[in-house]
Design a protein around this nucleic acid. Structure first.
Length: 499
RNA sequence: GCCCCCAUCGUCUAGCGGCCUAGGACACCGGCCUUUCAAGCCGGCGGCACGGAUUCGAAUUCCGUUGGGGGCACCA
């Protein structure tokens, strides 16, 4: 018996308002993969002027935790992905936690039982496990053998009345299911690959596919954008929706995120959760931009702010293939976003990452020095420490400093009569005068400045020197120069130390 | 094992039968700038997985192979 595609004749009304949902499971933090899926849904809905629903899929009672729900909401907010209806805000089709909707699932299951679309199953876990092992060994797709479907209603009723635990299974029709995917066209899944799955566990809690189908219908969800790992689930949900006589949403299955080697994304390759990227100090708009660019593109433009993404997003341009997570490209994009940030906003974020007690003048100078090169604010402490922490000069550095005594003493004199703190511009002017003075004596910029850098920071590399000078107060700068000179030639310290 | 999906530079992608001796971005390499390292700017390297078929013409369509990914729970 051939059956026509389920969705073809049941398309969503064109004039209906777009309604999408994020449906995270609170069994852990928000993964970048889930965040990207949420982002696509959000972009699609916001672009269309639609409604975003946040639904907590917490039917896994054993693994769901409130603290995870809270952290997911926090991560979503941090990313700027807001919702119109959800467990915190409420809404017309609530409640928005599946654990609070169990009665609805039971009622729907009862309806399916009554119409013969579902049946009670008394099989034990042990039997099911053995069955699966057997099937696997025989090289066939493991699936329920429908033993309990053959039970007469009298017998089932008798066993139920006797208190025997029973789950409810959906009777999958022996036909093919056609998923009309927005990105892939019609994908046909043989029902033989599905098996009669459980819609209500023996403890009375709904299974994932059932709760999802019931809620997508009850909440008026018009579009479901999700990873292609859900393709076979979609077939199940379509069957369920049809049995429930409900209109299915439009589905779009995008590709998944892979690790840099093309495998499954895992911790082995660094941060994988939104929370980790936040802690590393990435700008949320940068992570959003990067995630959007994995599987989606907009011409040659790559650096896009969230508002821009909303106006340009088109579902049809989502790629059906998988994409590897590239930390290098994320860092480049993040860097671009840092450079575009308002300098004051940047300085505020930078300073917030510095140790307590860092002088504001130092923080300001270092922030200005760092803006053209940072990718994430987690880099701030090390960037600042390289300048602020007492310098450690090695032998070579000491020798270089010793060879530049005259220049350094001249610079120290100039610094000694200047303000306690120098703005970067003032420091730059001071250095310009120093270079002029040196040039008149035939000293190259390098011979003037490298010894100074070494004396001040002990390092060959670092921010431009005027920022270094601006980050150190007068006393500290002078102490460092004198100390370095002292080490170069202790005997001349009396000469070197001027009032 | 069975079922499903995917397949353009190392990576993300543009390309939707002739505008393609395949464009952009990251990375990489080289140069410039420069007190250093970065950053920035300029240039270079580098790809249609393979085999058939359709067509006057294929990266673009179809079939197969190979490769990768996903699914196959009283998890979601």
């Amino acid at each position: 018996m051939q059956e026509k595609p389920a969705t073809a004749e049941r398309t969503i009304k064109l004039d209906s308002t777009v309604r999408v949902r994020f449906a995270p499971s609170p069994t852990g933090g928000l993964h970048v993969g889930s965040a990207r899926t949420a982002l696509f849904n959000w972009l699609f809905a916001r672009h269309a002027g639609g409604v975003v629903v946040l639904r907590i899929d917490d039917t896994d009672v054993a693994r769901s935790e409130t603290r995870h729900e809270e952290s997911i909401l926090e991560d979503l907010r941090w990313l700027g992905l807001d919702w119109d209806e959800g467990p915190d805000t409420g809404g017309p089709v609530g409640p928005y936690r599946q654990s609070e909707r169990l009665e609805r699932y039971r009622a729907a299951a009862a309806a399916l039982l009554a119409t013969g679309h579902a049946y009670h199953c008394f099989c034990t876990e042990e039997r099911l496990e053995a069955l699966r092992a057997e099937q696997r060994a025989a090289g066939v797709t493991p699936r329920y053998d429908r033993r309990c479907a053959a039970l007469s209603s009298e017998e089932a009723g008798r066993r139920l009345a006797g208190g025997e635990p029973a789950a409810v299974r959906f009777a999958v029709p022996a036909a093919e299911v056609a998923v009309d995917d927005a990105l892939r066209g019609v994908v046909t899944v043989g029902a033989s690959a599905l098996g009669d799955f459980i819609i209500l566990r023996s403890d009375g809690v709904a299974g994932y596919n059932f709760a999802t189908a019931v809620d997508d219908a009850a909440m008026g969800i018009t579009h479901v954008i999700r990873g292609d790992d859900h393709l076979t689930n979609t077939a199940r949900q379509l069957l369920l929706l049809r049995a429930l006589d409900a209109l299915p949403p439009r589905y779009a299955h995008h590709g998944m995120i892979l690790d840099p080697e093309g495998g499954k994304l895992s911790k082995r390759h660094g941060a994988t959760s939104v929370g980790e990227f936040r802690e590393l100090g990435y700008l949320p708009q940068a992570l959003v931009n990067y995630l959007a660019l994995l599987s989606w593109s907009h011409g040659e433009e790559e650096i896009l702010e969230p508002e821009h993404l909303v106006t340009e997003f088109e579902l049809e341009r989502l790629s059906p293939s998988a994409a590897a997570f590239d930390r290098g490209k994320l860092d480049w994009l993040a860097h671009e976003h840092v450079m575009r940030l308002d300098p004051e906003e940047h300085a505020r974020r930078f300073a917030a990452r510095l140790p307590a007690g860092t002088p504001p003048q130092a923080a300001a100078a270092l922030a200005a020095a760092a803006q053209p090169s940072l990718s994430a604010y987690g880099e701030a402490p090390a960037f600042a420490a390289a300048v602020l922490e007492p310098p450690q000069l090695d032998e070579a550095a000491v020798a270089l400093v010793g060879g530049a005594r005259e220049q350094l003493e001249h610079l120290a004199e100039a610094r000694a009569v200047a303000a306690e703190w120098l703005e970067p511009a003032a420091a730059r002017a001071l250095l310009a005068a120093y270079r002029e003075w040196g040039a008149a004596r035939g000293l190259s910029a390098k011979r003037l400045l490298m010894p100074l850098r070494l004396a001040l920071t002990g390092r060959e590399h670092g921010p431009e020197l005027h920022y270094v000078l601006a980050a150190l107060d007068r006393a500290t700068a002078l102490d460092r120069v004198r100390e370095a000179l002292d080490r170069a030639d202790p005997s001349s310290s009396a000469k070197g130390a001027r009032p």
